[in-house]
Nucleic acid binder design. Sequence first.
DNA 1: CTGAAAGCGCTAACAT
DNA 2: ATGTTAGCGCTTTCAG
Lengths: 367, 367
Amino acid sequence: MAGKRPTLVDLAQASGFSVALVSIVMRDAPGASEETRRRVKEVAEQIGYQPNWLARGLRSANSGLIGVCFAISHPFHADLVRHLYQASFGKPIDLVLSAHLPGRSEETAAVTLLDKRCEAVVLLGSTLPEEAMAAMAKQVPVVAVARRVGEAAGVDVVRSDDYAGAAMAVDHLVELGHVRIAHIDGASQAGAPERRDGYRDAMVRHGLGDEVRIVGGGIEESDGYGATLELFGPGPGPTAVLAFNDECAAGVLSAAAVLGRDVPSDLAVVGYDDSRRALTTRVPLTSLAQTYEALAKATIDRVEAQITERGPAIEVVTEPQLVVRESTAGSASKAGGLTSGRGGRLGRGGRGRSSRSGSDPGFPGVC
Amino acid sequence: MAGKRPTLVDLAQASGFSVALVSIVMRDAPGASEETRRRVKEVAEQIGYQPNWLARGLRSANSGLIGVCFAISHPFHADLVRHLYQASFGKPIDLVLSAHLPGRSEETAAVTLLDKRCEAVVLLGSTLPEEAMAAMAKQVPVVAVARRVGEAAGVDVVRSDDYAGAAMAVDHLVELGHVRIAHIDGASQAGAPERRDGYRDAMVRHGLGDEVRIVGGGIEESDGYGATLELFGPGPGPTAVLAFNDECAAGVLSAAAVLGRDVPSDLAVVGYDDSRRALTTRVPLTSLAQTYEALAKATIDRVEAQITERGPAIEVVTEPQLVVRESTAGSASKAGGLTSGRGGRLGRGGRGRSSRSGSDPGFPGVC
DNA sequence: CTGAAAGCGCTAACAT
DNA sequence: ATGTTAGCGCTTTCAG
């Protein structure tokens, strides 16, 4: 069925040039005349020649392969992967995905990448211990994205400033007049400690140290749901909640609905990641954008730098951006002024100020 | 930094055997004594030898690489990928993921897989034209999952019976006493035509041909939301809706809430895929399970069969399963009797009969 | 059971 | 600008 694929030799014969020259042409290396290039490419096209990637990688050790380790079914990772593809577009880089998921550990996912002789490995929101990263970094350049890693590990780090992001959320809520602001954290997720600290310190800075309230959460809607029920147990509940991510925040919204609390008038909710989910909840979520583009670009930059000439590990920290939407809009006077760079992505509503959650079938309304 | 990785030759020297013998041991091929195997593996472990996958692939043409083309951020695909990993566990198979997403077409994703000399390619819910598939199939075995493909394309097909699934949903709803049953379809998604037909024919079979009502939908919550608003425009709205997938069904739930219609008493909703989402909506969704395990196993089976000895393309059709939950439970007398094989997956509630949506903070409740 | 030798398809020196 | 020639690390005959 599969008629032997043509090799470089075939191409050489068919075009009448030597193998070496043809090779030069195929990888756009200097050392061939324009005329020759044209002719060779033409014949290549004709006989359907495709360079054999395995042989190329074997010989040159420049496979151009960059391994990307991510958690499938983690929305934030999906978006990140998308932007990594975009950031690597046009470059001699080939992304190889390796997913970790229930039943396939991150360690396993990373190892298969190494097996494939990737030139560098990108770890998205990794929860690998630093020692494991350090071990990998001995073999190939490693770039950890969206997660803090100690210098000793010797891996490049590209992350957005989670500490600052959480603080921005608190500032925003305080400005809206909130005092009882709670935080549903991300448990062992990458970035969780930073956001916890950012939240706590900001509260203290506003003289709200006594109001600090952190409950365990996670990245699932059910985490936000459960945590919210906990928050509204005995004692006065919060008037505002900063959730670890948008999914979690969606869970808060659900729980609020069940508890008969209106968002945002009874409870303001802030998510994190500014993912698509932030726009598809019943009440569009105020959220912190980690600016995927910046993260992705920085990541690819580091990868390129390291595979070109391995240097010392560097940390790149990008600034998150607060995107205000309805879930915190009504709490005080200010309502408009959406910072959003993506509002209305879904085509209908979502932008501007819709009358009130629940009464305007403008758009979304997940829930 | 990267201290030259040991090669087979190194292993041979270190263990005192010949390269060939060591090779035999490393790939568990017949032709070496137990004692030798033990010794070689020991030394391999010691010097940290890892077979070079590129060289192996180059030489043997049995890279063991299976390309998987999927849509990142498509929950159904994520689950499928997970099960593919599980189904291939322990086999000499290595899954290579290639995602398609906004900005990276499925065609591109597939081509990179071919470039990598995968031995076979698995297409999840592909929307590629049959000609494109046929072209690929000329190069390597192709298995299309969860999508119908004409015989002429020469690709193996593994799908669940969407036609039957949609019909089962209708049967269930009719049994519950519903008459005005609408279908929000999947537009150009894989499987959409089959589900449309299954719905329509089942309606006709029940003498409900005049009640057939199909509106355009999709796989996003916003699709379900918009479609529902459309359904409840002028004229009598439906009392039951079969959505294309669970996400879409979640959108129906949102819209129902906005329109003040209780689920399931005013409106019964059936999703599709029985994804995690089906459990995290405020009202747990009755849904059709495509039985990932079966699909994944069949897929890996076909792949193995085709790379071992390429034979004629085959179509494997698995039976979907109706999983009844609250979103259709209250409509008639019967309420319990959950078929679910996963109810309560989230640990709390979800199974059995909870009092009524909205009043029981038992579990989920998204939205 | 073991070892020697011939490449897989390509790139990178080195000639011409 | 073009051609020649070694291998990359491994598998695979084919002899011992």
